[in-house]
Design a protein around this nucleic acid. Structure first.
Lengths: 156, 156
DNA sequence: GTCAAATACTGAATAAAATTCTAATTATTA
DNA sequence: TAATAATTAGAATTTTATTCAGTATTTGAC
């Protein structure tokens, strides 16, 4: 099979594991009518090919006191430090997403902090320290109705 | 211990599992110097308390041909169907996030599709069918520099 | 189409891990 | 402080992961 092509079985594996990363190999094998050993090889291969990127645990953000979510629009000024500026921004643990979007040299940044005071502190103490970086707009999330990274897996 | 309070051990567990949902119970126990049986109960308790929401597999979106990411601003008109409108939107598998944001009755919606044609189809065939829902702006992501849901876990 | 090489799969054996349960320890609280 | 509840360890048991040799299947060259 080609390095990048996924057959029906692969897609079924991904579908099942996407929703439950801790499903046992035996259970997976049963569900797809395979021997556990064969299933194991499939999964290992998907990991090697980086089709499976990681297994992560979704933690209740509020349980950790992380009640504030915000989207911040930013502009990075062109220049020799462009890469470095991006790296500094990305390195902040409160920064969950950094998307380069169309229109100007702009970033859309998703930030999660405990509260608005922490966000303010972050913007004043961290963002402001990064050269050539300008926050242009901050949007506070009032309520999150849905938040997942589950992909639509084709049927084949 | 209180239903919601997390001690140092809990936080360590979350820290380790957040980055690797498939870490074995034995390995966790070793790392925190506990018996596997005790560790297992801790984890079960975190699951019951919904501090741990789920275990998910991060799949390479491009491997599944999902190359387009977009943020769509939307407005939902007030009315008796408000709840239903939200439910219909949320139910779409291409819709990964729905955030209610400050200012107007507005949603910020994150959408992932295979390409711009699919996005257009989604907007025309699905979004448009939902009553009282108006897309006000679509922002295409050119490049994603960082995308994680890892939370900042306090030290204690 | 045929054959050889590579790939994928099975089934059994073994190693490792998960799970259960009892007893003991520690923490809570009345 | 005593009684109660919660947590933990340790051993026994069940289940799962992993390995591996052999079989089947697919792939690609000719």
């Amino acid at each position: 099979m080609n390095t990048l092509e996924l057959d029906r079985t692969d897609l079924e594996i991904l579908r099942m594991m996407q929703g439950n990363a801790r499903i046992s190999n035996v259970e997976l094998a049963k569900a797809l009518n395979m021997a556990p050993s064969g299933m194991l090889e499939r999964v290992r291969k998907l990991e090697q090919k980086k089709v499976i990127e990681s297994y992560s645990t979704q933690i209740n953000a509020e349980a950790l006191g992380q009640k504030l979510l915000a989207f911040v629009s930013m502009r990075v000024l062109d220049g020799p430090d462009y890469q470095k500026t991006t790296a500094l921004l990305t390195a902040l643990p409160e920064v969950q997403e950094v998307h380069h979007i169309a229109g100007d040299d702009c970033y859309l940044v998703k930030v999660r902090t405990s509260d608005s005071a922490s966000l303010m502190a972050l913007m004043r103490n961290s963002f402001s320290q990064i050269p050539n970086l300008i926050s242009t707009r901050t949007t506070i999330v009032l309520q999150t109705v849905k938040e997942t990274r589950q992909l639509v897996i084709p049927e084949l």
